[in-house]
Design a protein around this nucleic acid. Sequence first.
DNA 1: TTATTAATGGAAACCATTTTCATTAAGGAG
DNA 2: CTCCTTAATGAAAATGGTTTCCATTAATAA
Lengths: 157, 157
Amino acid sequence: MPGGNCQRQEWWHGKFRCCGYRLTLGREAILDILSKSEGHLSAEDVYMKVHPKYPNVGLTTIYRTLNVLSNLGIVCKLDFGDGRSRYELAEGTEDTHHHHHLVCTNCNKVIDYTDFIDEELELLRKTEKGLGAKYNFKITNHIIQFYGLCDKCSGKE
Amino acid sequence: MPGGNCQRQEWWHGKFRCCGYRLTLGREAILDILSKSEGHLSAEDVYMKVHPKYPNVGLTTIYRTLNVLSNLGIVCKLDFGDGRSRYELAEGTEDTHHHHHLVCTNCNKVIDYTDFIDEELELLRKTEKGLGAKYNFKITNHIIQFYGLCDKCSGKE
DNA sequence: TTATTAATGGAAACCATTTTCATTAAGGAG
DNA sequence: CTCCTTAATGAAAATGGTTTCCATTAATAA
Ligand SMILES: [Mn+2]
Ligand SMILES: [Mn+2]
Ligand SMILES: [Zn+2]
Ligand SMILES: [Zn+2]
């Protein structure tokens, strides 16, 4: 089996090491799940997916790790207003790309979209610069989200 | 005293009546507070302001009323990521105008801004139309928020 | 005025997340 | 490799904003 035990370093190992974080089984498992699933998992979702393979990784560790990953900029913590935080791999990691979200207020379906992203980015740049100057505010982050009814939910009225 | 006891109807009475909601002392008190204070009050903030004058209005009623007002479109429910919902009079009521928010992630200060609002609205219209068509999604609402450090918090590093 | 039933307050429940604390194990030194 | 320091962990308990329950009150229409 070629490449079998060449223990290639995952891309996140560097970030961990240089910040003094230890590489534990739980953390690897969580990152592994996040890479393989697509988007918007809650802490419990992650737990459910990690548990079968690693039954001794507790929910507390999921929360703690997601927090660390979020601080490291490896994952994004999202809020779609359903009372629990959701997480996705951050832009730039793996093959993730900059996008925003369309949220159905009825069934909680979430659509990633990238349409008009260039115009958005242009406006964001302008706004960040303008507001930064005017209010002396150092902007590090932004949220753009649209809420409404998805095709199914608006159909059945 | 001219106009003293002419019991003029507040602007929200109509909205209440036509939806079958009763006009209670608690609801009037809460709307009164919301009109007089400016922006971003938590349920408990409202409770604190209502309590001195109406000690028999409970926190539960504050939550329930804010919920009703939110459903009626009279107030906006906001989330700045500090673990509690915040409320402000909706656009179009009183002298409130369309604006978005700048949130300090360190001290939780919130700045209302209206700069670039025209470009924003233009983009929003375009996006809503485009996404509505593409995903057959009926957009009713949006969030735009910037996060970062305010002048004081970025100064003291 | 009376009847109907929406609205209410207080206590308890809810539930995502955090804290506590005793135990485990990652990773550097030798 | 072994030993040592201490970061990381799991389970249980605590936290805290919000909701639910239920007996009581009061807004509104007849
Ligand atoms: Mn996404
Ligand atoms: Mn505001
Ligand atoms: Zn839907
Ligand atoms: Zn600040």
